[in-house]
Every structure is written in C-alpha cells, then in structure tokens.
Simulated assay, not measured.
Amino acid sequence: MSGPLSPLIENYLREVSFWHVATIGRGCKLDSKLISALIERWRPETHTFHLPCGECTITLEDVQLQLGLPVDGSTLTGSV
C-alpha cells in the first residue's frame, strides 16, 4: 500500500472486519527471487503451481486461514 487510507475507507474496512487485511505486508521485505520462481511455475489454465513435488493450488480456505478472515456472514456477489 502506498500510503494511509482515507478515514472513510478505513471505517468501511473496519465495519466489515477487513481492516487487518489492508495492513498485511507493511514492514515486510519481499523476496523478488521467490516471487519470480512462483510466477514461472504458475499455470493460469489450471490455476495451479507446478512444483517438483507435484501440483499445488491456493484455495479460498487457505486465504481465509492465513489471513484470519471471518467466514460467518452472508456471501456477497455482484456490485456492492
């Protein structure tokens, strides 16, 4: 994220329990070689990484567990 969010957006993110996602990665150093290696192994047609040990994909459940997102609300579809 390039800078602080506006108070209006910050309030919306807090209201939907998504504020902590906006702060992920702040202060973390990205490993460009690792990211490049993963990009090279990504297959968009199957949505998987092709690794020496086999195929691997990231599921919504993986994202939910890693980010600690709440999943106890209604599903949102379309424009909000």
Rank of each mutant, 00 (worst) to 15 (best):
M1Y: 06
M1R: 06
G3S: 14
G3T: 06
P4W: 10
L5F: 05
L5G: 01
L5D: 01
S6A: 12
S6G: 11
P7R: 04
E10W: 03
E10Y: 04
N11P: 00
Y12P: 00
Y12H: 12
L13Q: 01
R14F: 07
R14V: 07
E15T: 10
E15L: 10
V16D: 10
V16W: 11
V16E: 11
S17H: 14
S17Q: 14
S17Y: 12
F18T: 04
F18C: 13
F18P: 00
W19M: 07
W19Y: 15
H20Q: 15
V21C: 08
V21N: 01
V21S: 01
A22C: 06
A22N: 02
A22W: 00
T23K: 15
I24L: 15
G25E: 06
R26P: 00
R26W: 09
C28L: 15
C28A: 15
C28E: 15
C28T: 13
L30R: 14
D31P: 00
D31N: 15
S32V: 12
S32H: 10
K33L: 12
K33A: 13
L34S: 09
S36M: 09
S36P: 00
S36I: 05
A37E: 10
A37Y: 08
L38N: 04
E40S: 12
E40L: 11
E40F: 08
R41I: 00
R41S: 02
R43P: 01
T46W: 04
T48K: 07
T48I: 08
F49H: 00
H50A: 11
H50M: 09
H50F: 09
L51K: 01
P52Y: 03
P52V: 02
C53M: 11
G54T: 02
G54M: 04
G54D: 05
G54F: 04
E55I: 09
E55P: 00
C56V: 08
C56L: 13
C56G: 01
T57S: 14
I58N: 05
I58S: 05
T59W: 04
T59Q: 05
L60W: 10
L60T: 10
E61F: 08
E61A: 14
D62I: 02
D62H: 09
D62A: 03
V63K: 07
V63H: 04
V63D: 05
V63S: 06
Q64C: 14
Q64W: 10
Q64N: 12
Q64T: 15
Q66F: 15
Q66E: 15
L67K: 00
G68S: 07
G68T: 03
L69R: 12
L69A: 11
L69P: 01
P70L: 13
G73D: 04
G73P: 00
S74K: 12
T75I: 14
T75P: 02
T75Y: 12
L76H: 12
G78V: 02
G78H: 03
G78D: 03
G78P: 01
G78I: 03
V80N: 10
